[in-house]
Design a protein around this nucleic acid. Sequence first.
DNA 1: ACCTGAACACCGTTCAAGT
DNA 2: ACCTGAACACCGTTCAAGT
Lengths: 199, 199
Amino acid sequence: MSDRPFHHGNLRAALLDEAVLVLRESGVDGLSLRDLARRTGVSHGAPRSHFVDRQALLDALASTGFDRLTTAVRRALAGSGPDLAARFRAVAHAYVDFAIDDAALMELMFQAKGSNGATRESAATLFTVLDGAMGPRPTDGGDEEARTAFKMLFAATMQGIAALVASRRIERRDADGLIQAATGMMLASDLRARATTAG
Amino acid sequence: MSDRPFHHGNLRAALLDEAVLVLRESGVDGLSLRDLARRTGVSHGAPRSHFVDRQALLDALASTGFDRLTTAVRRALAGSGPDLAARFRAVAHAYVDFAIDDAALMELMFQAKGSNGATRESAATLFTVLDGAMGPRPTDGGDEEARTAFKMLFAATMQGIAALVASRRIERRDADGLIQAATGMMLASDLRARATTAG
DNA sequence: ACCTGAACACCGTTCAAGT
DNA sequence: ACCTGAACACCGTTCAAGT
């Protein structure tokens, strides 16, 4: 299942990879630096060379999590046509799928702690991609305020649906219906009209 | 600030009260059974009589958290008139205020772990109140599916906005605008029409 | 029924020492 | 620069014993 000859330059990456697995199995509570060190075959003090403390590891995990989610969203957008409704649903599904596969990581990403620089940057990139998903900005700039509000509302709604799924408060199939309802509602809204058409 | 003569019948309540304070100060990570025991003036083994393990305490905290949020939502509804838009905004503000004042507790409440019986019940009560906020059910029952979807979408959106605020990804004043946008969008939607009017 | 206090295994963090 | 290994303080959990 796992090799042995690590700790020769890529320990940091090895620790992060292993951490993602542990996160999936045992959640944040099951994640310990000593256990990670054990799994990668180094002494318990070794991780210190790459992460000043446990929180630093969690921050790094959140950062890479955002990167992976961004990639997933980009892929979803690339795979969907030009239709705005289809694009929205694609992004929403990428969000929810990620929340299901890596619930603990998703929690980590959307928590107050991630005040790290790299984490903020990764999160910002995701929001930029989300912005791009809304299609080209109106030539005259449009209603900038409406566009920002719409974007945040979209993110909040996706985040909310993902949280409901991750916390097992709703089933996967109900999520699909919710995504349909949410995207439909947002697309038909007056706010979207102001956000995406020239004023 | 804190009294001394506890541990005479209400230790459980004392531990929970103290835990809420610690949660506000230091988050979930700063919450330890031994520290709680120390603060309430009992031995480190005493909490065991009321909570089988740390997770049981967290579950109990989540449960009382839902109860308090339910109370806040009820109060908000009682203070607002019959206008649906006003009622929605009132509920949304109760949600977001709670998420700001008790961010760590809010996280605890909306996590996968809360599989406790009491927690589920408390959460269910909140959703019932949310249902009531939508006004009387149409006499003919209306579109039951639409009503459920709308309710979940409302919860998801509130949850999403609260999460964005709690994780300090958006400012408090931006939240107000978001709430306005979200409630406006939802009220104007076709889904709401199907959910709240007789078919 | 509820609480005490010792015991055990585990953890995060620090740090001098090695290579 | 990166890793080892001892050391320290803290924690969750268990359990026999007290009241």
